[in-house]
Simulated assay, not measured.
Amino acid sequence: MNFDFLSPVSDSVMAHTALLPQQALGRKIKIHSKQGGLPDLSQVKVALIGVLENRNDIDYLGEDLDLDSVRKSLYQLFPGNWQLHLADLGDINKGEAVEDTYFALRTALEILIQKKIIPVIIGGSQDLTYVNYRAYDNIVPMVNIVNVDAKFDLGDSDKSIKNDSFIGKIIIEQPYNLFNYATIGYQTYFNSQEEIDLMEKLYFESYRLGEVSHDISLVEPVLRDANIVSIDINSVKASELGMRQRISPNGLDGKEICAIARYAGISNKVSSFGIYEYKPSYDDEITPMLMAQMLWYFIEGVSFRVEDDDFSKEAHYQKFITLVEEQELVFFKSNMTGRWWVEIPFLSDVNNKLKKHTLLPCTHQDYIEACGNVVPERWYKAFKKNCV
């Protein structure tokens, strides 16, 4: 496997790891080091990649990135009762041009995803999500992206890509592989009315911060349906972060962002995960530790994945049919996990994107509301996108 563009984990992190207890995560993870080289990936399920690219940050002032603090924080944690193998492949350094970094990252992601290894990206500016999306061009026909962010990041797609406009590029640039885009934890005052209207017009999903904080389980189905999960660390409120990271007094708290990371992990569909917009500071131990705990919860989620979405055997599920506004809705409930899905019908007279009956993750509450003649919003948006 050709990963020549990956630089090993620093000697200072390796020295720190050598002093950790034998049970610590840093002593159990396969690490790309100067001495040992790239680890064998034959049994690895989750692979960390640092990407030291931040030149497309709209506030970029020439500073360099360093992920040593994040690694030290993660390595010192103790793993849960996990059976999966982990690797840290080191860092992709800044290329001569940003496009060089993009190429290296896309190449690495394509290799890992095709090998059924989940890449976990630690960035760098969030425009790297665009590269993550493009890595799927030759792998899956349609992609769902979840962005945990205070902003939609639609931006002006006519201008060059930046960390506040990468979603606009994803939407307008060929090949068109995006089926659904969802934002979790958005704050209205950070988004123009035009962007909010566009999200509605495109039948994309958006969950306001207040909704998410009121009931965090609301976002589980949308994360269950995602291929890519991208987290802007600035979606977390200022009091939970170090001085350089502080953007807004409002935002998700530490428990909420870790719950979201765990929901992403237990999703059978999520095949890449990233945390972006980290700005290192010598006196900041809080942000690296929060990121480490988010990574821990994501890995925990992956280790507890359950194949509960195989509906070929009737013993594995219960089926419920209800009539809503003359539309028959078919719901499925897994007997293994209690999770719910609703069927999106195949429209034979429309050149639709799905090409077959598709099951959309939903909640028990969606079924209850459907019984009360209320069309579930997720179902409605997916159905409308399918008709376009």
Rank of each mutant, 00 (worst) to 15 (best):
D253F: 09
D215N: 15
S235F: 08
G242P: 01
D253G: 13
S235T: 15
Y203P: 00
L252S: 14
I216S: 02
S281L: 02
I233M: 11
S239M: 13
E240S: 15
Y207C: 05
E314F: 12
V270M: 04
D308H: 12
I275V: 15
E220T: 10
Y278M: 01
E211Q: 15
I266A: 02
I228Y: 11
S213A: 13
N250S: 10
W296Q: 09
S303F: 04
D308G: 09
M243N: 07
K201V: 01
D308Y: 08
F298N: 11
L241Q: 09
I216H: 07
E195K: 11
L209K: 05
L202P: 01
E205M: 12
S248A: 15
Y203K: 03
Y276A: 03
F311M: 11
E256T: 11
T322W: 06
S230F: 13
S235Q: 05
D197W: 09
V229T: 09
V236M: 14
F311T: 07
M243H: 05
R224S: 12
N227L: 00
E194H: 14
L290E: 10
W296L: 10
E205D: 15
R208A: 08
F304S: 09
E200F: 03
S235M: 06
I321D: 15
S235N: 12
V236A: 13
